[in-house]
Computed example of a mutant assay.
Amino acid sequence: MERTSLYDFVFFGTSCRYLVDVRAPASYTASGCVGYNIQSVFKFLNENKMKVSMNAARDLYSLSKEFDAKYSEGENEHMTEEDIERVNVAMEVLRPTILAEAEEINAFFAKEKRYNIDLLYDNPADIFGASVFYELPESAQMDFGEGLKCIVLERGTAAAYHLMRGSEATLKQLYLSIVKQKRLAKPMWGPMVSKLEERGVLDDALKGTLENARRGFRNPVAHPDRFYSVDEAQDILGTTTQLVSLIVSHEKYTR
Rank of each mutant, 00 (worst) to 15 (best):
E77T: 11
F144G: 02
L196D: 03
Y7Q: 05
Q141T: 11
V230A: 05
P220K: 07
D235A: 08
S62V: 04
I98M: 07
E47N: 12
N88K: 08
I105T: 01
Y36D: 02
K182S: 15
L94E: 03
G129Y: 11
E73A: 12
S62D: 06
I247G: 07
R218C: 09
G35P: 00
R255K: 15
V221N: 07
D68F: 03
P191I: 09
E104H: 02
E82Y: 08
Q242R: 13
L206E: 00
V22R: 02
F144T: 04
E82F: 09
I98Q: 05
E82M: 06
K252E: 09
P191D: 08
D118R: 10
P224A: 10
K43N: 12
L171H: 04
R165W: 13
L210A: 04
D204M: 10
T80F: 04
E198Q: 14
F67E: 01
K51P: 01
S31Q: 10
R226H: 11
E154M: 13
F144A: 02
E92L: 09
N219E: 14
F11G: 00
V132T: 12
A107K: 14
D143A: 12
R155Y: 11
F9D: 12
E168V: 09
G35C: 06
S31P: 00
G32M: 02
I236L: 10
M192L: 06
L94W: 01
E135S: 14
Y175E: 11
A90F: 01
L210F: 05
G32T: 00
G190A: 11
S31E: 07
M1N: 07
T254R: 15
L60M: 00
Q181F: 09
A185R: 15
K180T: 14
D122C: 03
P187Q: 04
Q181R: 15
G32W: 01
L176G: 01
Y61M: 13
M91H: 03
R255V: 08
N76I: 03
A110S: 03
S245I: 05
I105D: 04
N106E: 14
R199C: 07
G74W: 01
F12H: 01
F227L: 13
K111V: 06
A69F: 08
H250C: 05
I38D: 03
Q39P: 06
E211M: 10
V10K: 14
Y7C: 04
L136G: 10
M192H: 06
Y61C: 07
N219S: 12
E251Y: 07
Y161W: 14
G145A: 11
V89D: 01
V10C: 09
T240H: 06
